[in-house]
Design a protein around this nucleic acid. Structure first.
Lengths: 202, 202
DNA sequence: ATTTTTGTGGTGCGATCGAACCATAACTCG
DNA sequence: CGAGTTATGGTTCGATCGCACCACAAAAAT
């Protein structure tokens, strides 16, 4: 009895195989045969569920994006009710870091796709334009903090937001390369937040 | 008359073809045949000058690294004599950004190699561990600025250096994806530098 | 009950891949 | 001049690639 959930689950199973192979050896290891073996299905099934290889890469990325959005939403909701601006901004920035195996792998998959984002129009549309939205969100939060007196008026909200998001993204790479520990990165971010939010929120 | 420089020049010619293909379609487009066509030499020559494909990828990366180091040195030397700490730190940070086509392409090549750095030991050794050294350099420069009164004593040199370098690296990605203009990125960095260096150097 | 949709496997074809092999210019050094 | 190194081209082989084609079971819809 093929319920509709089964179809999605199968696609997810295959997509996860794509992710694993991509993180291991880049997109060039993501061949139909290797994905089939990794997902323990037949090559024919890949074609049935995704079609061509290009569509497989695209589909696996879309599923990854949906995953990321949902997990981020969950984690931010876990902050509890009525958190201070400081805590919200901190939560948003930490979401950019590969703090657990799941996020680490996700960022590695993005890295494997990266160059394609620039040349492949189909991938570019799905690509990670989230940072820009995040930056505006952080800027708004800082501006709100200025209204409530948690942030000095002398702070340039937009410029600080841009640098906070960029800093988090920059440390993401060095964490992936294991040049820096996740704890280090969090400490560096907290140092900047302490400068901007002079009074502790909540 | 095969002077020794000819040999290196041929290797460079081939390496440049590797770079172009890698920036266009990732490492999976870097096949022996395609590189040969792009460099306008025979496949046999690739094997002669680099050996196996794995060695070709490694060699092209080494040449790229040497290039980057030399160009960076040149640009920093062009700052003139006895520049202030502020100018030096600014020069170091801007070197991380893809401000011209040459640096843009170089960063794209690194992006294409990225996932391999984590799994391939040979590539990992050559990989970009420069950031860590840069971070220490920036920290030292800020500390020197404190000695000469250009930087307030309340500044945490190490933490600020880490965030400056991370911020520059983070904006590098968004510039590559054309989500942000190079001028924007420079302005954001200058805003942070103005906060740290309260008196103008020199 | 039978027709249609959905899910699954296998297999084969043409293209391309990396790498090895064979040949031979051209230049260097004795 | 001759021996040897360096530089270059062409070709072929086995493996793998993406993908299309054929067949069939199981469930859904009619």
């Amino acid at each position: 009895m093929p319920r509709k959930a089964d179809h999605d689950q199968r696609r997810r199973q295959i997509a996860e195989a794509v992710w694993r192979l991509a993180t291991r050896g880049g997109l060039e290891d993501v061949t139909l045969r290797q994905v089939a073996a990794e997902a323990e299905v037949s090559v024919r099934l890949l074609q049935y569920y995704f079609g061509t290889r290009e569509q497989l890469l695209l589909g696996a990325l879309e599923i990854l994006n949906d995953d990321a959005e949902q997990r981020a939403r969950e984690r931010l909701a876990m902050l509890g009710e009525a958190p201070g601006m400081h805590a919200i901004v901190r939560g948003v920035l930490l979401e950019l870091l590969p703090l657990d195996e799941e996020r680490r792998n996700r960022h590695l998959v993005y890295a494997a796709y990266f160059v394609r984002f620039l040349t492949d129009p189909a991938l570019a549309k799905v690509a990670h334009d989230a940072p820009r939205a995040l930056e505006n969100l952080v800027a708004d939060l800082i501006a709100q903090g200025q209204e409530t007196g948690q942030v000095p008026r002398t702070i340039d909200a937009a410029a600080e937001a841009a640098f906070l998001v960029a800093g988090a993204e920059g440390m993401q790479s060095s964490i992936l390369l294991r040049q820096r520990s996740a704890e280090d990165a969090v400490a560096v971010i907290d140092h900047q937040l302490a400068r901007i939010f002079t009074t502790n929120g909540e």
